[in-house]
Simulated scan of single mutants.
Amino acid sequence: MSMTGLPAFDTTVQKSNTWVNDVAKELGWEDKHRAFQGLRVTLHALRDRLTVDEAAQLAVQLPILLTGFYYEDWKPATNPSKERTKDQFLSHISDYFQTIEPNIDAEAIARAVFKLMSNRVSTGEIEDITGILPAEIKELWPQAVRA
């Protein structure tokens, strides 16, 4: 039975929910809202480090619902960010969670999201993304992607 009465909506909700569930499972979290926020903020941090073209190419491989969240508050004129270190990248994740959960493991979140992406986004796109990233940030991706 359809949730919304619109198959396209139902499909994107189901696909997006699968992504969130996979992040939650990888992190050992039961709180889907927390997992969604981790996915969302990591996608934002990644998006802001990509060129405008590369950010758009990644967006087309996300579930449609997640694409909307991915583009939320985006300022393409500022891409790519000049930040180069892993700590700078991870600070975007930890800063987001600071008021809700100050001791969050930002690196674990980034690694979980990147693992999910390496399984759900085309190999060519992942190669393009990791080819743009500074070495320290690229190290957050699964070993198979970095090889």
Rank of each mutant, 00 (worst) to 15 (best):
K15A: 12
K25N: 11
I104M: 06
P102A: 10
R120K: 15
P63D: 13
E136S: 06
E125S: 13
T85R: 06
D128K: 15
Y96C: 04
D48T: 09
S81N: 13
S91K: 07
N103V: 08
G5S: 05
P63M: 07
L90G: 02
Y96S: 01
H33L: 13
R120Q: 15
F89P: 00
Q37Y: 10
G5P: 02
I109E: 03
I137N: 10
A24V: 06
K15W: 07
R34P: 03
M1H: 03
Q143M: 02
L50I: 02
A110Y: 01
Q37N: 11
E101Y: 08
E139T: 07
Q143A: 14
P76A: 12
K15I: 06
F9P: 03
E26Y: 03
T67V: 14
E26F: 10
G38K: 03
T42W: 03
Q57G: 15
W19R: 12
R84V: 01
T85V: 01
L27C: 04
V23Y: 04
L50F: 00
T12V: 03
K86T: 07
S122E: 14
I126Q: 06
I64D: 15
W74A: 15
I64A: 15
V20A: 04
L62C: 05
R49H: 14
K75A: 14
D48Q: 11
E83Q: 13
W29C: 00
